[in-house]
Every structure is written in C-alpha cells, then in structure tokens.
Design a protein around this nucleic acid. Structure first.
Lengths: 221, 221
DNA sequence: AAACGGCGTTTGTGATCACAGACTGTGGCC
DNA sequence: GGCCACAGTCTGTGATCACAAACGCCGTTT
C-alpha cells in the first residue's frame, strides 16, 4: 500500500505533535517542493477536512506561513500561494546571492570529508531527479543539498532567513521549472564541492553565487 | 484624560482592522521598542483581556510573531520574549551588517534632498532621546531613521528580513542599552547622511556597517 | 535545611458556533 | 449581446467551551 500524501489520521512520530504543527509542516513542504501552483486558492475548511483537523489549527499554521511570506492572504482574508512579479523574483535571487555565499563561507572551516561525501551523494540524487524530469524531486533534493551544507555554518538565524526565501519562491520556481529544465545545476554543485575540498573560500562564494543566481535569473530573462 | 497605552476599545483608524491585526501591531511595537524584558512571560488570556479581545486573535498574533522570531514559545507552549545568547546576538549583528549596507546602496540613487532633510530631522530626534536617556525612544527613533532610508531601496523582501532581525533583537537591545548609553550613534548617522549627500556608495556602505556593528558589538564585549 | 510529593490553579489546545462580508452564478434589463 | 442586480453559498473572523498538561505553591519527609 502506497503512503497517502495527506493522512487524515496522524501517523508515526507526528502523532504526538500538536495539530497546528503538523498542518504547518505539511503545508510548508508542499510549498517548498513546488506542489502548489502560484495563485492557487486555499481554504481553512478545505485544508481542515483534508488533514483531519478543525479550522483552528489550520488558521494558526496559515498565519505562520503568511508571516514567512510562504502564503499570501488578500485584504478580504482569502488565502493563496503567492504570485511573484519578476522584480520580486530578482530581489529574492539577490538576497540568496547575499546570504548563501556567507553561509557557505562559514560552513567551510567546519566541513570535514564525511560531510562532503554526503553532499556528493545528495548531488547524485539531484542528477537522478533531473534525468527523470521530476521537478518537485529536483527542487527538494537541490534544497537538501544546500541546507545540509549551510547547517554546518552554525548560523541558525541566517539559515532561517534563507529558508524563508526558498519558501517564498517555492510555487513560482515550480511553475517556471516546469517549462525549462536545468542541467548545469549539478555542474555548479560540483564546483561547490571542489572548492569545499580545496578549502578555497573565494571560489566557494563564487560557485554558490553562480548556482543561486543562474537558477533564478535565467528563468526571468 | 491621558490616552491609555493599551485601549480596550479600538480607537481611530484601527477600528476597522481585524482584531488579530491590532493585537499583532500592538505586540510588535512593544517588542520592537524594547518595552518587553527578555524572558518576560506572556499569556494568551492576559493579553486578551488587556487588549479587549478573546484568546483566538491573540493566538494568531502570537503565532505570527513567533514565526518572525519576535517571540519564543517553549515546548509546552509557554510564550515569552526571547532571551538571546551572545553568539546569537553576534549573528544578528552580522546579518544586519550584510543586509543593511545593501539596502542603503540601493536607496542611494533614489535618495533626493527632501529625503535627506527628513533623515536629518529624524537624527535630531535620536539625539534628543539620547540626552533625555529615553531608551525606548532612542531605539524607536533610531529604527525609524534606518527604516525611512531603506524604504527607498524598493526592496520589500530585504526590508522585511531586516525588520525581522530588529524584532528578534528588540528585547535584548533594550536590556543592554539600559546599562550603557550610546552617543556615537548620531555621529555614525551623520556619516551616513554625508555619504548620501555625496553620492558615495562605498562610504555609505561603510558608514551603515559601522553604525550597525558598533551598536551591537560593543554591548557584548 | 533541602529535596520530594501532591494538589489546586493556570495555561495552551482544539472543536464548535454565530456572524458578516465577499464571491459566484443566474436571471432580468437596457 | 452585454451589463447590472440579486440571491445563495462560501469563507474568514472571533467568542466560547471542554480538556489535558504544566506550573507553582505548600506541606511533609529525610
């Protein structure tokens, strides 16, 4: 039996988590992995029945995600996945170009070989998702790659900001990636890994910056 | 009759805003202006009766602020103003040092004289708050100065991230500023204004960076 | 005197309900 | 044919309530 994408009953380790937390994670993953189309409308009651809870915890989860920019609520309170203008996308890209090289540079002195090997393996997963043209899979594994590296930076606030940016761009990224498929992503990742192995901070900053900006910039132009 | 600091009945323009929005703004300002001590406990019912609403809108506002890092909730759900470690404070300072010079640089080409004059006036207000040793007033006017400049950058996402950092540091800043009072803040601000008038981007970046890092760094060491 | 145990109180959580506003689609009118 | 008005439905909002867990206080014990 295949696992249901949205279990009405809490299963496994999630059983003891508060309902609003489960709803939050569920929605967050959908957004982050590009499973929601930009502008797609959501309703409190709909999400509640779908996830097997009442409106109350759903409201809290939605409010939380809206605060992170992951969802947008209209003046009248309607909830939807955000639609980003090109200027906004460029801004998000330049924020990534600002924060992520810094996170990489901070992770560099703490990145031992075991970590680099794990990143290498993750990069293979990114590759697989690309050849299978599995867009959500590509987005997910790509972000996992970056996140695993940045975790070593020991900078939780900076990482939280960065993930907030990913979240904001999630739905739009998906919609854009559906049109053009990237393959130079793994090339950039290989450059990142090489700089990591060499302990080359300027090279690492450059490689991360290239990876981040190429991904978004070429989707606009 | 003096205006109550926390009106139980919505007054003026706020009357038509949703209750959760009013609660959010009320709490946000208290945090941002350093009116809450780090670790100070808050309760949903307490805030509700104080602000004249039920628990429901308070819960949404608190959840939203917690998502921005402005409040911390324990594993058991207790709400309090966050207590930041020194490492965390340093991290927040370096994030400010990363984002704010960029915001300033983007605002620079759009900063006409009227704006600079307004900033000058605001800087006088900062000065007044300092000589009166009005700590919340100093924090508030100082942030107003920065915010007014950054608004010209036309980078809403970057500004939102920056304000989130201010929010996170709010209570701790207050607790630290209560001990030592800064006076070179206005000197840095004057350097910012001079660079703005001269159209000197590198100088502006440097001045903002100095203003931001001096404020926090010297409170730690 | 310090640590432990127990109980009353306080606190967050989640469900339910009444209500007002917004949206949808349908019909009639110009 | 296109535009507008109206009604029905859907949606978010906020209050209230029952409940379980956590906290704090106080008396007892070692």
């Amino acid at each position: 039996m295949t696992p249901s994408p949205a279990p009405a009953q809490p299963t496994g380790a999630d059983a003891q988590l508060p309902a609003h937390e489960r709803v939050y994670r569920q929605l967050r993953n959908r957004i982050l992995w590009g499973l929601l189309m930009p502008g797609a409308p959501l309703t409190l009651r709909g999400l509640g029945t779908e996830l097997g809870v009442s409106m109350t915890p759903v409201r809290e989860a939605v409010r939380r995600l809206a605060a992170e920019g992951a969802l947008s609520v209209s003046a009248s309170g309607r909830i939807s996945a955000p639609e980003l203008s090109d200027e906004r996308l460029e801004e998000l890209a330049s924020i990534r170009a600002l924060l992520e090289p810094e996170l990489g540079a901070r992770a560099l002195p703490r990145a031992h070989l075991a970590l680099i090997d794990r990143l290498d393996i993750m990069n293979h997963r990114v590759d697989e998702a690309i050849v299978k043209t599995d867009v959500p899979g590509y987005i997910r594994t790509n972000l996992e790659f970056h996140r695993t590296l940045y975790l070593r930076a020991q900078a939780p606030a900076m990482l939280a900001l960065t993930e907030s940016i990913w979240l904001q761009a999630g739905p739009t990224m998906r919609a854009l990636y559906a049109r053009r498929q990237r393959s130079e992503a793994t090339a950039n990742h290989r450059k990142i890994l090489a700089a990591l192995r060499a302990g080359d901070e300027p090279g690492l900053r450059l490689a991360i910056r290239a990876d981040v900006t190429q991904g978004l910039r070429m989707l606009i132009g």
